[in-house]
Simulated assay, not measured.
Amino acid sequence: MAVFWKAMAGGLLLTLSLTLLGWGVEGQGNGRGKKEVSGGATVYLGQDRDIWRPMIYTTVNLSEIHSIKSSFQLRTFDPEGAIFYGDTKNGQDWFVLSLMGGIPLMQISREDILISVAGGPKLNDGKWHTLEVSHQEKFVVLEVDGSNRLEVGMQSKQTQEILVGELRLAVGGILINKEKMIVQFEPQMDGCVREGSWLNLSIPWEADVEELWPCYQNIQPGSFFAGTGFAIFNTSVFPIEADHVVKTELWGDFSKMDGTILSINVPGQEMIFALVANNNTKEVTLTFGEEKLSMNDIFKRLVITFETDKLQVFQDEDESKTTKLSFAGSHPGYLTPWREGRLAFGGLLGKGEDDVGSHFLTGCLEKIQIQGRDVDLDLAVKHMSISSHSCPA
């Protein structure tokens, strides 16, 4: 995908495009310590790296650009993240395309103009959507699936110059200081781009990773854990209601999970709470201090309520499968870790910096809620192997 500004016939020429085609990625070294990849590669935007760093990037001479229309496909369940960046004049004029709240957001800086515009349909429904960006006289036009249009008009009072030099393009990140943007957003996106038509150019792209991660052919909503890391929150971000109850709800096929689903502890102390799945025995075990509960029935939803003097576990909201753990006099109390602890999804918390975690989860949590609100793992300190918004289907 590419964006550039160029004076032509007294107007603004803005081109956005992307060349991403096929599931496989073939690459080779280019002698500069970079990974060279085909411009037709499918790119997973959530691959492990610094969150603002582009996934792939390239540079092209402006004199080689003749097309003013580009298109590509995007698929994601993620409501927010960077899709594409382009600039001229080494970053003085730039363009950023992202999603925010699932809706396309374009931000443009050119000479004395700084514009932000959002609109169109929500795109984070897990389906492939075709986006086309073109320059039509003084307007930049974004079309979604051939009909929904978002238009931006731009006209500078300054004398327009004929641009020469290079155009920098990047997918999945930006090449300027993020503070220059009008609208700030979380850049990492759990999504894929493919099948781009990019300025009719065939120049190679570069990546700083050894291999590009593949995109799954089919996906479903959820958070996928690959067995190599977890997501951590301070429990203080989840408020305890006036009734002194904390309600945690987990959805998924627990019989297909393996590893620690959820753990809670207070730093420097022994593990207080752990929920662990065993794929071999098809058993889910809940441990709270010295108390232990094993569940081997097939279920798709687990509700755990923490109260001052008891902990209750519901399977599929079936009252006949409700288990209550009562408060013991020597126990610190079921709500204590929620006031001063750490919570991890997908791994067993360690005691400190030298013992970060272990027994990581492999599997899909289709939905996570605490106090009736969806939990977004993008807001946690998490391992980059975790897909926050999609699982393979």
Rank of each mutant, 00 (worst) to 15 (best):
Q160E: 10
I203K: 15
P204T: 10
S70K: 10
S236W: 07
S390I: 00
I68M: 10
A277W: 07
I261S: 10
A231T: 10
L163I: 11
W198F: 13
C192Y: 06
S263C: 10
G346H: 07
S294A: 13
R342H: 05
A41R: 01
I108S: 00
G222N: 04
K157C: 01
K321L: 01
S109A: 03
R373I: 04
Q73F: 10
W213C: 13
L163H: 11
M55G: 04
S147E: 13
T19R: 13
G10L: 04
L163A: 13
W213V: 04
S236F: 03
D258S: 06
V237D: 01
G29Q: 09
G341Y: 05
T159A: 10
K282L: 08
I103G: 00
Q107C: 11
K157F: 01
M271Y: 02
C364R: 01
E36A: 02
W338H: 06
I182C: 00
K282P: 07
Y334G: 00
G46M: 05
G363Y: 05
M257Q: 05
I386K: 02
G31Y: 01
P214Q: 02
G329K: 14
E26I: 07
V375K: 07
Y44L: 12
M384R: 14
F314H: 12
E111D: 07
E319N: 05
G126W: 13
V25M: 01
V37A: 02
Q369H: 07
S236Q: 00
N148V: 06
S263V: 09
I51T: 05
V164P: 04
F77S: 09
V356K: 12
N279F: 13
K178M: 12
V313R: 06
E340P: 00
R342W: 06
S294Q: 12
T323C: 00
Q28G: 12
R53N: 08
E241Q: 06
